[in-house]
């Protein structure tokens, strides 16, 4: 049972959280031309890094989306920042 930090609520049981996506992806402007490859990259391509990762998580109970930095091998939690302040 991991403990994850919600930037607003603080440390909570991992079952209160949901992994949403890798951080740093942005949706192509679909009102313009988007190639099949570009769209597939947005939808499907992943870094899937082994080690430190930056991911978007949701604290389901309070619905906060945030960027969670953690280590995908040791499970160490490094940092949690609200998505709205995410500079990336």
């Amino acid at each position: 049972m991991q403990l994850f930090p919600c930037p607003f609520c603080g440390d909570r049981d991992e079952r209160e959280f949901h992994f949403a996506a890798e951080a740093g992806k942005s949706r192509p402007d679909t009102t313009g031309a988007v190639s099949d490859a570009e769209w597939a990259t947005y939808l499907y391509a992943q870094r899937n890094d082994k080690g430190p990762v930056r991911e978007v998580w949701v604290h389901l109970t309070c619905a906060e989306l945030f960027v969670l930095e953690r280590d995908s091998v040791t499970m160490a939690v490094l940092r949690a920042t609200p998505l709205r302040q995410d500079p990336a």
Binding site: F8, C9, R15, L60, T61, C62
Partner: peptide, 16 residues
């Protein structure tokens, strides 16, 4: 039902 300790404060009252 879960962990809810008075010595672990949280700004919100929502939890699992």
């Amino acid at each position: 039902g879960g962990v809810a300790r008075p010595d672990q404060p949280s700004p919100s009252v929502v939890r699992l």
